[in-house]
Write a protein that binds this DNA or RNA. Sequence first.
DNA 1: AAACTTTTTGACAGCGTTGTCAACAATTCG
DNA 2: CGAATTGTTGACAACGCTGTCAAAAAGTTT
Lengths: 343, 343
Amino acid sequence: MSKATINDVARIAGVSIKTVSRVVNRESGVRDATREKVEKAIAELNYWPNQSARDLAASRAHLICLVYDDPSAYQLPSSGYVIRLQEGVLRVCRSHGYELLIHPCNYRDKQVGEELRVLIQRARPAGVVLAAPLSNFPRIVKAIAATGTPFVRLSPGQKLSGQRVVATNDREFAAEMTRYLASLGHKHIAFITGHPKHKAVSHRFDGYRDGLEQSGLPFSEQLVVAGDNSFGSGEAAAMKLLKRKRRPSAIFAANDDMAVAVIRVAGRLGINVPGQLSVAGCDDITLAEQIHPALTTIRQPFSTMAEKATLMLVKGTTESELPEGTTVVPGKLRIRESTGPAP
Amino acid sequence: MSKATINDVARIAGVSIKTVSRVVNRESGVRDATREKVEKAIAELNYWPNQSARDLAASRAHLICLVYDDPSAYQLPSSGYVIRLQEGVLRVCRSHGYELLIHPCNYRDKQVGEELRVLIQRARPAGVVLAAPLSNFPRIVKAIAATGTPFVRLSPGQKLSGQRVVATNDREFAAEMTRYLASLGHKHIAFITGHPKHKAVSHRFDGYRDGLEQSGLPFSEQLVVAGDNSFGSGEAAAMKLLKRKRRPSAIFAANDDMAVAVIRVAGRLGINVPGQLSVAGCDDITLAEQIHPALTTIRQPFSTMAEKATLMLVKGTTESELPEGTTVVPGKLRIRESTGPAP
DNA sequence: AAACTTTTTGACAGCGTTGTCAACAATTCG
DNA sequence: CGAATTGTTGACAACGCTGTCAAAAAGTTT
């Protein structure tokens, strides 16, 4: 285990510790010859700066904090979401010398604001990435904003001015999916809405309407059923839609959990997917590819979004200059087996 | 945002900073009256110690590092595993004032030893939790051991002396599952083995043999097919077993991915599960509960294992006194729909 | 009450780095 | 060539805390 300090390097290289510090931090104003001497000494001693010391001296930690809704708190099968977020943040952390501190929390807990305040005060991260649906709660956003630590919100429903946001184009891709279904010849495309608190998901409903209009299809209240993002609500909605005398030939659900539920219900009712019914979802959860028929959906760029957000928080990137505003990362249509020509 | 330092607290409380430090660190030898004064001042100023400073002064970081195989590197559907590990470590971190630093890595990468050395040198964590299957690779274990940082291995195949290990009772629970299947009247219980490099999984084969013996059933090479933990290998193994003239009435797979594959293949072949074939797995992945019929399996105590391991690394616990040895956390049989009486 | 022991407290020196600012060296200009 | 300018380097004081060790206070014993 290396115990070399900056002093050792300075001694070996025959320069002052400050010069070593400059080289390590890639500051300008060091003569090439000097830089080389120092780099040689660093390599020789296998020196690596002590993070605690630099953080103390610079009064900032080389840490990015990712805050998300704890999936284990509700047995959600959405761990894929968390993993993808972590991936994105990690990519940037790795390349910029930051570490990732993860903090799942439960938004139902009244203490969560306080909890985050304490977290930030303790860890003093360089920035916080706040994932949806947490990014929708004013209580939580305010708590973080109050600490003065830079933060970026992921897919919040409403954009507050003066804050940085990375979002996806929910409305546009929902329209795209709707147009795709229409292009298959479907005339009766039903929609299962998401949880009203989850704003990004509700934008998809607007997109659905856009898509209908763009395809010259009429909108009908009859074809819309409310869901709340859960598998159970998807089942209930599917029952409602599929037991009708004149059932829709396609069902577009605001998220994959509900879409999977629709496929399950269709199976129980003996309705063939995609032969008699096309089903589409949103998110591209892991399960989407594993079920049969594999679900047509929209891959959310979670990992890329997290990456962009982290770049905004990391020192020395062009992204970190952005004072505020929204960056949009587009979702991607994934056509699989659950959709087909209208019967 | 609080900017109070230990000096402020000391001034307000009318004591020295060292006494404040003692109170904050719960050291003994502080009079109750003094402690109260200090606590009052701390509350009043909303003081929280600066982690970088205490880590620097104490030359140890309040950080636990969780190192695991990067599921995204192979599109494994095993993100549930990672999430559960994180949960366990986080529980202990939260309660003991540590933070969790996650480090997924790819064991196929030759550089991984070096990568971990750098990570540890940079972050200087209080300890490292090394998850399976990484915990099986001597190259990786050695790299971590060389840094001198305390670490605990999770479910390694072989136990090295002088190291701390938290494992589950793979052999015992595999025997239990086998006995359970036997108790349902199955006489021909097939087994699909796991990846030979994944030692913990191979112990399950021994357990299978134990279980047969304990149930008075003969062991037959005919009933054993090799798999490698992947869904694909499970499909291949299932085909081999189910196309036989005299096919087994139960198939026990060394992991859930393969068990799910068996169910899928049975479905394609028109074999009813559990009516004509019972299928059991190991691990209790998220998917196990989501498929139909829901998979009978053994829930691995990943979260509890990670918790125990972390406790060994955290200062001030009885667990951290353990110099070496293995702690066993038992798995739990989850009987669902994929197993039933022998036809 | 003196002498000792034990408990509680504080002074002070680091921990390994960065920021500030002044000093020095090299380069350019009149 | 000296002066002015620009580029490079180093001395030193933080940063906020913990460890060491000695001093002070409190408790015990004779």
